[in-house]
Design a protein around this nucleic acid. Structure first.
Lengths: 289, 289
DNA sequence: GCAAAACCTATGACTAGCGATAGGTTTTTC
DNA sequence: GAAAAACCTATCGCTAGTCATAGGTTTTGC
C-alpha cells in the first residue's frame, strides 16, 4: 500500500491517515495487561529509529519505578538497563537526573541534550542556567533526546532516549528526524500508564470557581496576605477571606495550602506568576501600617 | 515522492519521516510574527481535515483572547468566528465552555463530545459527572473534537474543532482518523504561542528540594497542619516547619501558599492527592490533643 | 418582569496555625 | 574528622480560619 507524499501546499493534513495506521497504537495502554507489550513496543520503536535505549519516569515527583502488571520493573525487564545499574530505581532522579528533570519542568516540547547544552525546538531561556557540567555522569550517556510530558493534576513525566552502546554525542539529526514520533509514542505510553496505574484522583463535584474567587486565590498563590490582597482589590480583608473560603469549599479543601494546591492542579491559576504585577503602592501602604 | 506504507510488524517507526516532511511545521511559532500565519495554517488544516472551525484558548485560566502580533483577535480575524459572536472573548469559558473546560482539566488526550457524552480514547471516569445537558447552547456546536494541552507551570490550553456550518453530531469517525494530527498541530501552535506571548516566567535559581522537604510539602498541600505532619512523619513540629521553610527559600516563596503553588507548578508534588493515604490513628491523636 | 440563585461585600471577636528567630544536637556524607 | 544535612526545643508575633450575621447586586430561568 503506497501513500502519496504531500507537497508543501496545504495538503499536509491529508497524510495524517498514515500517522496511525490501523486502529491500534502499539504504545497505547488500555489495561494494566497492556503495559508490558506497550513498553516493548516503545523499546522497539526507539531501537528502530535510532538505536536508542528508553528511560521512562511516569512521575518525576515519585520514586516509584515504572512496573508492569506483575510488578516487574520496566527499566531492567523491558528497556534493557542492566540489573547492576538498578540502583537508580531507588533514585529515579539520577537517570533522568537533575539537568534533565529540571528541563522537563520548564519545557513543553522534546529536546536533546549533551554536556554542551540543551537543544530545544525553539530557544527557552529558562533552560540556560541549568548546570550540565556533570552531564555524562548523571545521565549515563553522552547525549540524550528527552520528551517531557505535562499531564493533568500537575503531574510531569519524562522519557529519555539515549544512544545504546555507542558514543554519539550529537543527536541533532536524529532529533530533527524522529522527535515527533518519539514524542507521540512516549506520550501515548505515559498517558496510558498513568491512567491504569493511578488510583482514582480526587475530583470536586462539578465545581465552578467565580471570577472573584479565582482572583483572590491567585494573589494568595503568589504570596500576598489577606491584607495585601484587600488593598490590591480595594475590598475589605473579610471579603477576601470570604472568597478564598468559598473557593476552598468548592474545591473541597480544608485550608489555604490545599486550596491553592488543588486550584493549581486544575489549571485555575494558570501561569499566574508571570502576569501578576507587583503593586509598589500597596506594598508601601502595608509597610506604613 | 512515494512513501512505502508500513506493515504492523515493527516498521511503524520508519514512516516517521513523512510525519513532518521538511523542516518547517506550519503551525509552529518561533516569533510573534509567526502567530498569524501559524493560526492560518491551523485553520486550514482543520478545514481540510474535516471542515472544522477552530476555537483556541491558550490558557483556560485567562480571559484574554488569543491575538496576533498586531493585537488582532484570532477568533474573528483568522478562525472565522463571526464578529457578532465576539462576546465570548470576554468570557472565553463559554465557547470552550464549562463542560469542555472541565474535561480539559481532567483529561490528557484528545476527546470528542456531544450532548450525549464525552468520548475519550480510553475511559476516564473523572469525566462521567460532567453535565452536558446544555451542550449545544454552551458550545455552539452539536459536536466537537477537543484537544487539551497541559503545559509547564500548570498552564492548561484547550483547542476545539467543531463542524463548520453543518449539523454533524457524531465525530467518532473523524476523531479516529484525525485526532492525532489535530493534536499535533494544536500542541505546536499553542506551545509556540505561549512561548512568544508570555512574559518571562519565574524560575528559582537551580533549586533542588530534598526528599524531606518534598515530603513535608506534600502533606501540607493535602491540607495537613504542622502538628499533623509531625505526627505522620514522627518528627517534631519544628522540624516540619524547618523543612517547609527550607523549601520556601529554595523556591523563592514568601509563605506557605506560594510555596505550595510553586512546587505544584513545577511538578514536585505530582499527583499527590491520589496517593496520600489518610492516617486514622494520627487523626485520632490530633483529636485527643 | 419576577423570583430564585449566585455572587459580592462587610463586620467583629476569637483562636488555631504559621513564620521568624535563636540555639543546640545528631546523623550522614565525603 | 569536618561539613552538610537533618533534627530538636522554645518563644512570640502575625496571619489565617471560624463563626454568626447582615445586606446588596447581578445573573439566570421561567
Amino acid at each position: 500500500m503506497l501513500v502519496a507524499a504531500r507537497s508543501d501546499n496545504g495538503d499536509a493534513a491529508k497524510t495524517a491517515t498514515d500517522f496511525r495506521m490501523g486502529r491500534q497504537v502499539p504504545t497505547a495502554i488500555q489495561t494494566a495487561a497492556d503495559i508490558r507489550p506497550a513498553a516493548e513496543a516503545l523499546r522497539d520503536i526507539a531501537r528502530d529509529l535510532g538505536n536508542f535505549r528508553v528511560a521512562a519516569c511516569a512521575n518525576i515527583a515519585s520514586r516509584s519505578p515504572m512496573t508492569d502488571a506483575d510488578g516487574n520493573v520496566l527499566a531492567s525487564g523491558v528497556f534493557g538497563w542492566p540489573a547492576t545499574k538498578e540502583q537508580w530505581w531507588q533514585k529515579p532522579l539520577l537517570a533522568l537526573s537533575s539537568p534533565l528533570t529540571f528541563a522537563c519542568r520548564y519545557e513543553n516540547e522534546p529536546f536533546w541534550a549533551n554536556a554542551h547544552g540543551i537543544h530545544t525546538r525553539a530557544p527557552n531561556p529558562l533552560l540556560d542556567q541549568i548546570d550540565l557540567s556533570l552531564f555524562q555522569g548523571e545521565v549515563n550517556a553522552n547525549a540524550v533526546i528527552c520528551v517531557p510530558v505535562h499531564m493533568s493534576f500537575g503531574q510531569i513525566a519524562a522519557i529519555s532516549f539515549s544512544p545504546f552502546n555507542d558514543k554519539r554525542d550529537d543527536l541533532s539529526k536524529e532529533f530533527d528526524l524522529y522527535s515527533d514520533q518519539l514524542e507521540y509514542h512516549a506520550r501515548r505510553f505515559v498517558h496510558g500508564y498513568t491512567r491504569v496505574s493511578s488510583q482514582r484522583p480526587w475530583i470536586p463535584k462539578n465545581c465552578r470557581l467565580s471570577k472573584r474567587e479565582v482572583e483572590c486565590l491567585r494573589w494568595a498563590a503568589v504570596g500576598k496576605t489577606d491584607v495585601e490582597i484587600a488593598l490590591i482589590l480595594e475590598r475589605s480583608c473579610a471579603t477576601v477571606r470570604f472568597h478564598i473560603h468559598n473557593a476552598a469549599i468548592k474545591l473541597e479543601a480544608v485550608n489555604r495550602s490545599q486550596t491553592v494546591f488543588k486550584a493549581t492542579q486544575l489549571g485555575y491559576l494558570g501561569n499566574v506568576a508571570a502576569v501578576m504585577v507587583p503593586h509598589p503602592q500597596i506594598e508601601a501602604q502595608v509597610a506604613a501600617k
